[in-house]
Nucleic acid binder design. Structure first.
Lengths: 351, 351
DNA sequence: CTGAAAGCGCTAACAT
DNA sequence: ATGTTAGCGCTTTCAG
């Protein structure tokens, strides 16, 4: 790309126009400076402000960052920004970023190690003050390397044994799902999970399986296809290829339930009569599709992950946080619940 | 936030270690330099490369940008990154960005003018080389102001009368939806649209309405609630509050159909028998919910919007592009189509 | 083939 | 209350 000649006014121009030094201009125009009158006479302050406004002056963020070694920017690495879950978490992060005058820049990594490294380093090249990883892999060493470079960061969504994170209580969620299905008399339980390296997956599996075993049920079947509509579809196809079918299904994303339910429908299986389903994240899709789902406040999780990072950047000690989860029962596990949304029903989220 | 002491190695350190000047180091390590041997002896080149690698050197992108006045960064403004549509467009943009070694940074504006301005200026403060707006408002003046500042940009998703854009053929899509519903014998048509300032909305409305009127049907009813599950819910509630009900519904987002269908279900109305529905974007939700939907290649639209921007940055002339749309008929308009997904059915997208 | 010097726009000692 | 000076890390004439 060719050079675009910057037409932006500089402090030097203002200084020349007002007849002061750039130092004075810098001091007056620095937004961190709460009491600019300390540095210049009221007339000078006024003149500088007027000139800045007349010229349409804006501070060059790059120059400031280079000089101060802090960019007021944080990098956020997500497995996939397009996913409802990550997008909602990011919305929370972005909210806090805005409240604190920092810029949150984001990139998707698709959980590919090479891509994660590439994008992380690219962000560090831009001197981000800190990072938030929503794509941690259990016990991986990548994050240790980042820490060794003295880059401050927090984790959100997925935890890691050695680093500070903000996560849902996934273990409790797993238990909750199992206990709910068991309370309905379901005995052949199955799960559509994520990959093993995701703490979200392993923790939920652990909670789910232990609750099932404690209830004297056989080991639940695991389909580790993932979190998409397609993942649910593929898992359901695999289930139907190998009878007996499960009568209780827990998927780690509402979208996967949507995909699975579609296959069930095609084969004449009824939800919840033949298969009861529990989804995750209690998204608008869950509401609109009458799905029982386990929810957690994703937006607040995102908020906290940046709040913690900012605390850490201020030198405060920080600790991991675990968010409580809640079960919302709908028609997909309880045939007595109405199908469809009544006209007055509230709906939780904006999407 | 306090200063984080940068531990990063600099060219100066490499220069000192190798015993050359920073100039030489800069020349050798500049990735734009295709033939570094032109600048130094093979031994010097090798020594510099080794030192850089040993120290873990990475160029300080901010310093480069400040010096060269180009940041290899583009800003992307979206109405809402969490939405399937915008996220998919952004995925295309990001792909091209990566292919060209540029960084795409993004922010959501919620279509609020104040937020758009704030985020745009923040990006310009970071010296982005160009911008892509996915949130253009018809005939607004904001974009003219940006152009007056000589900031190169393109539009995607929504068009504007005075600027280059990459959009779907929304007018054709509107016609297509209407003609399909009319061909099924539906006569009481309704739409769940976006706001008037969105070209996506107005163009589809125009196509839909003109096709309806040409067929001798009464003017379709418009519910301008928007693109979310909730929007569809609210629109459906409004429909049912005012009989006679429509028998053909076109919504500008699959999610809105999902929300509306939920209300219909609750009131015992059958899809498609009582109300046939056509959605938009042919998302995985459409597939999983047996919805007829109009699709367009969102990812490629995103790709083209950045390709055009890069062309413009290279001084090439560029022109607006319009992407073709396609109708995929499913059960929501055709009771003879199977419900649910057959085991072999392919599914278009990754989400 | 290599280097010295200037400077991108800004901030922060250190003056006065 | 204001200015001088130095310099963040890098690229880029200009000189040799």
């Amino acid at each position: 790309m060719p050079t675009r000649v910057s037409q932006r006014p500089t402090q030097r121009q203002i200084a020349a126009q007002v007849g002061v030094s750039v130092t004075t201009v810098s001091r007056i125009l620095n937004p961190e400076e709460t009491h600019p009158e300390r540095w210049a006479s009221p007339e000078t302050v006024e003149a500088i402000r007027k000139a800045a406004s007349d010229l349409g002056y804006r501070r060059n963020a790059l120059a400031v960052s280079l000089r101060t070694s802090r960019s007021q920017t944080v990098g956020v690495l997500l497995p996939m920004i397009g996913d409802y879950v990550l997008a909602t978490i990011f919305a929370g992060i972005d909210e806090v970023a805005r409240e604190n005058g920092v810029m949150a820049i984001t990139a998707s990594t698709l959980d590919e190690p090479a891509l994660r490294a590439e994008r992380t380093f690219k962000m560090l090249d831009h001197l981000v003050d800190g990072m938030i990883f929503a794509d941690a892999h259990l016990d991986e060493h990548f994050l240790d390397g980042i820490e060794a470079q003295r880059v401050p960061f927090t984790l959100v969504h997925r935890r890691h044994s050695r680093h500070i994170s903000v996560t849902a209580d996934d273990r409790a969620a797993g238990r909750m799902a199992a206990e709910h299905l068991i309370s309905l008399g379901r005995t052949r339980l199955a799960m559509v999970t994520g990959r093993r390296y995701m703490s979200t997956g392993t923790d939920r599996v652990e909670g789910f399986v232990s609750a099932a075993l404690e209830a004297g049920l056989p080991e639940p079947t695991i389909y580790d296809n993932g979190f998409t509509v397609r993942a649910g579809r593929d898992a359901a196809v695999a289930m139907l290829a190998r009878p007996p079918y499960p009568d209780g299904l827990f998927a780690f994303h509402d979208l996967a339930i949507l995909g699975a339910a579609s296959v069930f429908r095609h084969h004449g299986l009824r939800v919840p009569d033949d298969i009861a389903t529990v989804g995750f994240y209690d998204s608008p899709m869950a509401w609109a599709s009458d799905m029982t789902s386990i929810g957690v406040n994703l937006q607040d999780m995102g908020r906290r992950s940046l709040e913690l990072l900012l605390d850490r950047l201020s030198g405060k000690p920080i600790e991991s946080e675990v968010f409580p989860v809640t079960l919302t029962v709908r028609h997909s596990t309880d045939p007595s619940r109405p199908v469809g949304s009544p006209m007055e029903a509230p709906i939780a989220r904006a999407l």
